[in-house]
Design a protein around this nucleic acid. Sequence first.
DNA 1: GACATTTAAGATAAAGGAGTCTGAAATATG
DNA 2: CATATTTCAGACTCCTTTATCTTAAATGTC
Lengths: 141, 141
Amino acid sequence: MILSKSCVYAIRATLYITAQENREYIPVKEIAKELNLSFHFLTKILQGLTNASLMKSYRGPNGGVAMARSADSIYLIEVIDVMDGLDIFSECLLGLPNCNDINPCPLHEEWAKNRTSIHKMFQTMTLSQIVNNIDKLRLGL
Amino acid sequence: MILSKSCVYAIRATLYITAQENREYIPVKEIAKELNLSFHFLTKILQGLTNASLMKSYRGPNGGVAMARSADSIYLIEVIDVMDGLDIFSECLLGLPNCNDINPCPLHEEWAKNRTSIHKMFQTMTLSQIVNNIDKLRLGL
DNA sequence: GACATTTAAGATAAAGGAGTCTGAAATATG
DNA sequence: CATATTTCAGACTCCTTTATCTTAAATGTC
Ligand code: SF4
Ligand code: SF4
């Protein structure tokens, strides 16, 4: 898998939150239940997003978490960056050291092309765009 | 990283072996030294390839390992299959369950395109092709 | 203020991948 | 046959990721 499980959970959670328009703070417990994830694990993951200022949170009754900015200005790559970092988009496929563009292996061009393509995809896709184009009922499960 | 470390080590080792034309069996100790890998770890990895009949081995002095078939008929995907399996080429990017082609998320088409492209790359590239197009001195390190 | 709700923080545990080590089996050489 | 070489087999350790659990802090409601 390209993305870690934590990263995928983070993406799914932010998509769920984005789909809940007209609501202020969403309890983590609700998100965990709807997405069928461990509450405590998801809590820790979303805390990471909150510390990175991608989300905001509020304690106490009626509290929960929410996106820090409008979801149509949040790109998938931002969530990925917080969770996994961006190394995957510059890493070599074969992990060979001492490789450079001057004398690349036969895989390099093809690999670099796809790597860039995937990177661009994450850089241009916002949370809103995904939510608006998906059957919202499918976000859970 | 898309491929596991073991898989990358396996690929690098098979490339090194392929580059050693005119030689019968190559000792694992030599490969490990040249590629700067742990001998015992590489031994275990190459045993896997041998058990999968991708390589053959011979014990005792002058023994070692060799590719089971001509390297120009061995495709990268075969090594990857033995080490990591082929699930990565059908897996969903986001690991979402209950996803299908009828009602895909906005990422699906782009992701599937690149996934297929990478798969094809591994399916069409032989060990010989890589070795013939790379600076052999760079295989070590 | 008492109490219930909810996130924050951090310790702990379980699982898998990565890497190490030891001894057994095979084989060439003398 | 004795010895050195080399793969085979499996146990074992180490590290990272994944997941669980416990306690504290904040906050709304009565
Ligand atoms: S040349 Fe090949 S091995 Fe080197 S960085 Fe590019 S893809 Fe990786
Ligand atoms: S539709 Fe999206 S989430 Fe579903 S399998 Fe395709 S890429 Fe994954």
